[in-house]
Each structure stands twice: as structure tokens, then as C-alpha cells.
Amino acid sequence: MTDSNKPGSAKPRVRAAADKRRRLTTEAARILHEKGVERTTLADIARAADVPVGNVYYYFKTKDDLVRAALSEHSAHLDTITARLEELADPRARLRTLIEAWIDQREVAARFGCPTGTLAVELDKRADGTLDAEAGAVIGRLLEWVARQFGALGMEDPEGLALSLVSSYQGMSLLTNALRDPEITAREGARLLAWLDSLQPQG
């Protein structure tokens, strides 16, 4: 009996395949953020993930499949962040910590912009698919989470406040990237923190 036929021998292969897919997905999210969809090749992602380029097609048939995987990575990252924030008892502290995380990422924003926002804008320019809607859905989930925090604080119009907060983030990320100036995010983030602290529950 060869090793490949021994009972249980398939498990290492399954784990290895899952690990390759995980590496490809992680690197797709990173490289697409840094280079954009049009300038990224499957070879770029394979090289970064240390996977032979021919093997990429076993996991992802097209670049769009990799873009979807990258969007799933963004969604999972959002879940991780919000789960950690939920450990804070106070919804206002959750929102403050979120804004502070944005400020901490200002150097990355200066170089590449917001990961999901820039991807959504680029995909919107394409006329051959629905990936822009999938990118928008990730931003929509962030809006919903932020609105729940404002609602938990008893604020009037939590959805409107969430829109103000997230659109401010997207705007400062865009300007930070366009002007290559991380201090824009630092200054505007401080304004957002002061604005958040000034809000009072209704009635």
C-alpha cells in the first residue's frame, strides 16, 4: 500500500490545498488593494502566495474569481474587527475605537486608499459584471453595523449618522490617497472623534 492510499493520507492533501487557497485569497486582497484590478495579474498573486502559477487555476478559474475571493477576505476582516469591537461594553467606545483604527492606518491609506472603497470604485468602471455590487455590499455591512451602534446609544436617525461617519471615512481616505498626505486622516479623524463625543441621545 502506497502512502497516498493509506487511510487518512488524504487529510494532509486537503489541508495543503486549503492552505494554498487561503494564501492565494489573502494575497489577492493585499495586491488588489495595492495595485488595483487591472494592473494585477494571476502571476503576481501566485508569486506572492508562493504557489505555482499553473496551480492558481485549480482554485480560481479567472481573475474575477480572485476578486470575489478578495472581497470575501474584506468581509471576513470586517467581521473580525466588529467582533473585537463588540467586546467593548459601550457602543460609543466601539465607534471611537473604529475611528482610531482608521487613523492608525493613515500611512496605508496615503499609499493605497481604503481597501474596499478603492476596489468598489474601480469595479464600478467595468461594464462586464456585478462585482461592484459585491464590493458595495461589504461597505453596506459596515454601515449597518455602525447604525446599530448609534441605535444602541439612543441617537435619533442612527442610519443617517452612520452614513455621515462612513462617508467621512471614505472621503478622508480618498483625499489622503490622492494627496499622499497621511495627516489628512489624522486631522479629519480627530474631527470625527470630537463630533462623536458631541452627540447626545434623543430626548
Rank of each mutant, 00 (worst) to 15 (best):
I81C: 13
I81S: 05
T82M: 06
A83H: 04
A83I: 10
R84H: 14
R84Y: 11
L85F: 04
E86K: 03
E86C: 00
L88C: 04
P91V: 01
A93D: 03
R94Y: 10
R96V: 02
R96F: 00
R96K: 08
T97S: 12
T97V: 11
I99K: 05
I99M: 08
A101M: 15
A101Y: 08
I103P: 02
I103S: 06
Q105G: 11
V108L: 12
R111N: 12
R111P: 10
G113V: 09
P115I: 05
T116S: 07
G117K: 00
T118E: 01
L119D: 03
L119W: 00
L119F: 03
A120D: 01
A120E: 08
V121C: 10
V121H: 09
E122G: 06
E122W: 02
K125A: 15
R126F: 08
A127W: 10
D128C: 05
D128T: 04
G129F: 13
G129A: 02
E134C: 11
E134Q: 11
E134M: 07
G136F: 09
G136Q: 11
A137E: 01
V138D: 03
V138C: 04
I139A: 13
I139D: 11
I139W: 13
I139G: 12
G140H: 09
R141D: 09
R141S: 10
L142C: 14
L143W: 15
L143C: 08
E144L: 12
W145L: 06
V146I: 15
V146A: 13
V146K: 09
A147H: 08
R148Y: 05
Q149S: 08
F150S: 15
F150V: 03
F150R: 02
A152K: 13
L153S: 00
G154A: 15
M155Y: 07
M155I: 12
E156H: 15
D157I: 00
P158I: 00
E159V: 15
E159R: 11
L161V: 02
L161S: 07
L161A: 07
L163G: 10
L163S: 14
L163Y: 15
L163K: 15
S164W: 06
S164G: 01
S164P: 01
L165V: 00
L165R: 01
L165D: 02
L165C: 01
L165F: 02
V166I: 15
V166Q: 12
S168C: 04
Y169P: 04
M172A: 02
S173A: 15
T176P: 00
N177M: 03
N177P: 01
L179H: 07
L179E: 04
R180E: 10
D181A: 08
P182D: 00
